[in-house]
Design a protein around this nucleic acid. Structure first.
Length: 297
DNA sequence: ACCTAAACCTGGGCGC
DNA sequence: TGCGCCCAGGTTTAGG
């Protein structure tokens, strides 16, 4: 489900709602969802405050800080160690969350009704909680004790299409491979944050065939495609993301970008531009939708 | 470097 | 109702 616009929508809401909250307890019933292990995760996170919520690619990054009640719980030697490892701004540890295909992060009050598919709950001292729901159990939360450990994970990702990616960089990336353009858009090491929906939609806007070898795009095509990517991601953000099936924001609400789909999931339906039936093919094992007339090979 | 298939899992939709 | 099948927003790994 969640690609850049969906993850960023959740990030903005979490930043507003839970920065400053202190994690007093963690409940879970799926050990695999807390990495490297529930024990390490809980030891690292419990008693700390959330000092920031960031995003890189489709990953949410929760920054943790120590506070007095946590310090009382640990030994003097351990406290000193933590202080040495902490950043200048007091950050000491992180956890990242990947929602994969069906993950949800929901901000709730303890007394609120139960949500479906919840497998972990971060309980805050204030009485509020962050519920991690996952229908397919692919998503995870991972504790990272230092900036270096976090860096090892983040360094693998390619540039952010709405921040880091200028047309020269983009065209250089495309020139390096003759793989189908859609697979390059999906490759997180090349460009981060684009998934199956926005790749299909951007290619339709740019009138480019998903199978075209990346290194065969003209300068004009490459420029048009980057603009299309920025356009569909911004539109996704403005409409609160795409709730094709599982996606909900941090308040449990659907987004509405699915109402703007031009090709995704529309096999057999007429293209809004030319009326020709949208086609579905497989590329890299993923469903791929395009208009054979507007996006000729 | 590239490709494919399978794996990780559950659940919704559809045809019969 | 129920069963079998296909499909699903992501990523990793094994094997060719």
């Amino acid at each position: 489900m969640p690609e850049l616009p969906e993850v960023e929508t959740i990030r903005r809401q979490l930043e507003k709602e839970i920065v400053g909250e202190e994690i007093s307890d963690i409940w879970y019933d799926r050990a695999k969802m807390l990495k490297p292990s529930p024990e390490v995760f809980i030891t690292g996170v419990k008693g700390r405050k959330i000092s920031g919520v960031k995003r890189r690619a489709k990953l949410l990054i929760f920054e943790l800080s120590n506070d007095s009640s946590h310090s009382e719980l640990v030994s003097e030697s351990k406290k000193t160690l933590k202080q040495v490892q902490g950043d200048v701004n007091g950050t000491s540890g992180y956890f990242v969350v990947h929602l994969r295909l069906s993950g949800r992060l929901l901000v709730r009050e303890k007394k609120d009704l139960a949500d479906d598919y919840v497998h972990a709950i971060f309980k805050f001292k204030s009485g509020r909680e962050l519920r991690f729901a996952e229908a397919r159990l692919f998503g995870y939360a991972q504790y990272l004790e230092s900036k270096e450990e976090l860096g090892k994970i983040l360094d693998k990702y390619g540039p952010e299409p709405l921040d880091d990616l200028d047309k020269e960089t983009f065209s250089q990336i495309l020139k390096k491979t003759r793989r189908p353009i859609k697979l390059v858009l999906l490759d997180q090491e090349k460009i981060s944050g684009i998934g199956n929906i926005y790749a299909s939609e951007a290619l339709w806007v740019a009138k480019t065939n998903p199978q075209q070898p990346a290194n065969s795009l003209t300068a004009e095509q490459s420029e048009r495609l980057l603009e299309a990517i920025e356009q569909v991601l911004r539109e996704g953000l403005e409409t609160g993301g795409a709730s094709d099936q599982w996606y909900r924001n941090a308040y449990g609400e659907k987004g509405s970008y699915q109402k703007h789909f031009k090709v995704y999931g529309k096999a057999g339906e007429p293209c809004s531009e030319c009326g020709v039936a949208i086609k579905r093919i497989e590329l890299g094992g993923r469903g791929t939708f395009f208009c054979p007339k507007c996006q000729p090979h």
